[in-house]
Design a protein around this nucleic acid. Structure first.
Lengths: 158, 158
DNA sequence: GCCACCTTACTCGGATAAGGACTGTCCGAGTCGCTAAGG
DNA sequence: CCTTAGCGACTCGGACAGTCCTTATCCGAGTAAGGTGGC
């Protein structure tokens, strides 16, 4: 099981955008993180489709958050980039083979699927508890309260 | 994010093995579930490497659980087949770019990685709470208390 | 001096290749049970 | 009748292709700002 690498970029980009007062171009976000400009664009498109960020075209355009960073959860970003389909997909093998369960007994999901679904529910709940704004605070604390100030300064340079 | 399809097979196979009194060949497990015989063998090998099942060669050989079904958790099976690496892998992008964090500030994992790790911890905890024996009971209940009896009868046929 | 238009440069978006992982398959090495011959 | 050697068949294990998804990249359509010319 592997999560898309773009998720990490997307989350960090949202943290950066939470500190910006104006649209930030994708190229600038890529430069800040030292990552591929073209591929990051693809991930930002997914954030845009999910409605987390708004894209402004033309000169002085770029990306900006569509709502307050405190109301964007990490789960929102993960699902926007990595998809919202569950990791475990039941293929209903209980209905196959010589002792297949008859369809009338299969009104509820398979027992295995229920266990997996519950675990993923716990995973999503944990990610839902943390917002982009929370992350920004955490990152700032880890740096000794200097990261956000430096970030805002760097953004103003552009 | 997608979990290997073999996980579903592995869990169901463990439930079957929990009802067996003698080794069950891979071919028979595949027949029971109506799935590919050759590919299932690959997944069973992973269960064997993880020490969850024991393989007996030669005639009347096959697979059997190495310990009580009540002490084999769903998490054990998932990690045996899908790997035990975390879904989220931090690439430390905080240490890249023009405002890279100096290494001396990076003694703790990145804030984003910590959130992801906590969520996966919750996911693993949920899977750890359910054993293969629990699953067998669940499957039996869903079938109106007929599945396990039928399964044991089918196994005895061989 | 003010307004309208045009040019320009910059932005995103979707369509297009390369790589890697998962899926699926095969055949060979090893082992156990059965059989048959001998004592 | 019991022991033992040989045989046969069955088992798993690792090595080998096919296919899908993720990763990575490019170029074109659209847009807003800024400059320029006219009024």
């Amino acid at each position: 099981m592997k999560m898309s690498a773009g998720v990490e970029w997307g989350v960090h980009c949202c943290v950066v955008l939470s500190q910006a007062q104006e649209p930030v171009p994708a190229a600038r976000l890529a430069e800040f993180h030292g990552i591929s400009r073209t591929y990051l664009a693809k991930n930002l498109q997914q954030l845009s489709r999910a409605g987390l960020v708004r894209a402004t075209e033309g000169r002085d355009g770029g990306y900006e958050l569509t709502r307050a960073a405190s109301s964007i959860t990490v789960l929102d970003v993960v699902q926007a980039i990595d998809g919202d389909q569950p990791a475990f997909r039941c293929t209903e093998i209980r209905q196959r083979g010589p002792l297949a369960s008859p369809p009338e007994e299969c009104t509820r999901p398979c027992g295995v699927a229920r266990v997996m679904a519950k675990a993923e529910q716990a995973w999503r709940s944990s990610l839902r508890e943390v917002s982009v704004a929370d992350l920004a605070v955490t990152v700032d604390k880890d740096s000794g309260r200097t990261a956000l100030t430096a970030l805002r300064g760097w953004l103003a340079e552009g």
